[in-house]
């Protein structure tokens, strides 16, 4: 059962829906319910519980002061507790707006044309219609990239994320050739980033996600520093067409910021698939097929094949 929320509550969702949906956070959310004299505001907020039912609570009961977990403070080799991040990309909505790329670039201090998200022009066969396919790192559950790393500089976390330790990576690039999805990029030289010294220094050190260290590998990191604050990654937020859904598998829910859907139901009813499933990499990113497209396909210069 999928509850389609159409009213605009984007802002709230961005702040806390991912976490607000969890049984775990639900407990903390309502922690102030009992005994305390909370003044109800009258503004009702709908939340999706883990079993898929919708509960309505007064916004006053929402505890927005969820204690923050600084990623840099916990072990970067463990994931965000209580999370199993998952993404669903709806190919029928993508019109190659490339806002996800921009959002990602901004988030990660990458030059405009370089980001961890790719938007690929795909055409499955000659007669089939072309479509746009945004691709992040799939954070595979059976990741070929982490297997080959000689120094354990890239590894799988408990929250599903495949992470990189840019302070350990020796730059052998074996993980890049092992990833069948070409998800990884390399810091070939600082000049690629077009940052001057001051700008480069201004980049906050964020251990748990890809950072720029010369001669090491980088890729989409699923923005754990956002996820742990129950916020959405920038690519998800930036997309004007709601292509990306992000969420916590433990909650069985994903959201694109506008609507929140039950993950299992969505995957079932929309015939979701994972890219190159036959390789056995078990991606954590699902695709909804490009049927009943929202936009007609318009080719773009950037995607001319070589």
């Amino acid at each position: 059962m999928i509850e389609e929320e159409t009213n605009s509550r984007r802002e709230f969702l961005e702040k806390s829906i991912v976490g607000g949906l969890t049984a775990l956070s639900a407990a903390s959310l309502f922690s102030s319910c009992h005994g305390d004299d909370v003044k109800e505001t009258g503004e009702k907020v709908k939340l999706l519980s883990p079993d898929g039912t919708i509960v309505e609570v007064d916004s006053a009961y929402i505890n927005t002061n969820i204690p923050e977990l600084h990623l840099s403070e916990h072990n970067i080799r463990e994931g965000v507790p209580g999370k199993k991040f998952v993404m669903v990309i709806d190919l029928s909505r993508c019109k190659n707006a490339r806002k996800c790329k921009e959002g990602c670039s901004k988030m990660h201090f990458l030059p405009k044309e370089r980001s961890y998200v790719k938007v690929e022009k795909m055409q499955d066969s000659e007669m089939a219609a072309p479509y746009w396919m945004p691709m992040t790192c799939f954070h595979c559950d059976n990741p070929p990239c982490t297997k080959v790393c000689p120094v354990d500089a890239t590894y799988k976390l408990s929250d599903g994320i495949v992470s990189i330790d840019n302070n350990r990576c020796i730059g052998c690039r074996f993980c890049m050739v092992a990833c069948p999805y070409s998800a990884r990029i390399f810091n070939w030289g600082e000049e690629l980033y077009g940052l001057n010294d001051a700008e480069a220094k201004a980049i906050p050190d964020h251990d748990a996600c890809s950072s720029h260290k010369l001669g090491t590998v980088e890729k989409c990191d699923f923005c754990p520093q956002m996820g742990e604050k129950n916020e959405l990654p920038d690519c998800v937020k930036a997309c004007p067409n709601g292509v990306f859904y992000f969420g916590n598998e433990y909650d069985d829910a994903v959201t694109n910021g506008d609507e929140t859907l039950q993950l299992s139901e969505l995957l079932k009813t929309k015939a979701a698939f994972r890219y190159l499933e036959e390789l056995g990499t078990k991606p954590r990113v699902y695709y909804l097929p490009p049927v009943n497209r929202l936009f007609p396909f318009k080719d773009s210069e950037e995607s001319k094949n070589s």
């Binding site: 000689p150 120094v151 350990r168 020796i170 730059g171 010369l214 001669g215």
Partner: peptide
């Protein structure tokens, strides 16, 4: 070929036997 030859020591400190590079070494 290494992007970070200065970190070569990691091969010995953090070497993981499941990587074919370690087998090669």
């Amino acid at each position: 070929d290494m992007g970070r030859p200065d970190r070569m020591i990691n091969l010995f400190i953090h070497g993981r036997i499941q990587s074919p590079i370690i087998w090669d070494v």
